[in-house]
């Protein structure tokens, strides 16, 4: 498809317009944090950021989501479902986080069971990606098939080049958007900008310091569930908190429960849940199939590098590095992958 140009000076105008016409989600500064929030205009938006503290996955799978409300008196019951999603633009998301949304798609848009809440948001959303300008020491998207300037999953991808944004139109949704705001998305000769973008991508791809290679790791996992490796330091130091799963852009597990508001009414809520919590698999009868940190850590990392691949033919990790940064005890998926690779090579 075609490409366009936005002058940096016009970004504010674009954001203000988008906020007027859509629910606009964009990165904002909240004290020390960079988070994706719904914004009312350009003034709150922060585009000069490395990686948000929490991924924008909440745009499609909010931490709390009402699936319906009910009015129940024992012998009468009324169920009311919320309206479908409103037109939304997710602006300024990084390529790794956008790739992560693609790992959600087969989960929620399954063969047998769909998910109206997810699909409604997905269908009504336009994703405007923003190429990275910097690689952090914790980044490893290249090892998961992505890249700092990867277009995968974006409807439009913006790349900052000097005082301009080079805009790649990737989907029809993206095309419709640039056509609707054609006074901002200027039609110009973009040959030089395209070249500059390739240069940037090349430069950034040389800046990764974490060496991660998945080759052979899944094959090792396929044939070895029990490995002494899982009894090592990681399960000893894990504190069973939910950080890695909550900051992870591909973690999609949830819980469902009722939230009563009194007077026979309430909401059914689904909210993020974490496989690192002991209660996650604890059955009412007391049996727990993953009773210790060993089983839970193994399950989480196997899910990322094997189970998600088995089921959906996609790695369940995009290399955003958030779990690496945020884990209080420095459990590091890249170390786990490399250690397993070593185990595979020595086997």
């Amino acid at each position: 498809m075609e490409s366009r140009v936005v002058n940096k000076g016009q970004i504010s105008e674009l954001l203000d317009k988008l906020a007027k016409d859509y629910n606009l989600f964009a990165p904002v500064k909240d004290e020390t944090m960079t988070l994706f929030r719904r914004v009312s205009g350009a003034q709150d938006v922060l585009l000069d950021y490395n990686n948000s503290d929490i991924s924008p996955k909440g745009c499609f799978l909010p931490q709390n989501e009402k699936t319906f409300s009910y009015m129940y008196t024992g012998d009468s019951l009324e169920i009311n479902k919320p309206e479908g999603a409103q037109k939304t633009v997710l602006f300024g998301a990084r390529p790794c986080d956008i790739k992560a949304v693609l790992t959600f798609d087969p989960v929620f848009e399954g063969v047998k069971f769909g998910d109206e809440y997810y699909s409604s948001k997905r269908e009504n959303s336009i994703i405007i990606g923003l190429s990275c300008t910097k690689v952090l020491s914790t980044c490893f998207c290249y090892a998961m098939g992505g890249g700092p300037c990867d277009i995968t999953g974006s409807d439009l991808l913006l790349t900052e080049i000097g005082d301009k944004y080079y805009v790649e139109v990737i989907t029809e949704k993206g095309q419709a958007l640039v056509d609707a705001y054609s006074q901002i998305f200027a039609k110009q000769d973009t040959a030089q900008l395209a070249k500059d973008k390739d240069e940037l991508a090349k430069k950034l791809s040389g800046e990764f310091v974490r060496k991660v290679d998945l080759t052979g790791v899944k094959e090792l996992m396929d044939n070895n569930f029990e490995l002494p490796y899982w009894s090592g330091d990681d399960q000893k130091k894990c504190i069973s908190c939910g950080i890695c799963t909550y900051v992870c852009p591909t973690c999609h597990c949830f819980d469902i429960f009722d939230y009563t508001t009194g007077d026979f009414t309430g909401d059914r809520i689904r909210c993020w849940d974490s496989c690192m919590y002991p209660e996650y698999t604890l059955e009412a009868g007391g049996h727990n199939p993953r009773p210790t940190r060993k089983e839970r850590i193994r399950n989480r990392f196997m899910h990322k590098i094997k189970y998600h691949l088995d089921r959906y033919n996609m790695v369940g990790c995009v290399g955003c590095g958030r779990c690496v940064i945020k884990c209080p005890v420095n459990i590091d998926i890249t170390k786990i992958i490399n250690d397993l690779k070593e185990v595979a090579q020595n086997a």
């Binding site: 988070l35 069973s240 908190c241 939910g242 909550y246 974490s274 919590y277």
Partner: peptide, 12 residues
Amino acid sequence: TRCLRCYACRNV
């Protein structure tokens, strides 16, 4: 409002 309820503060 920001709290994710990851319980890291409790678990640590």
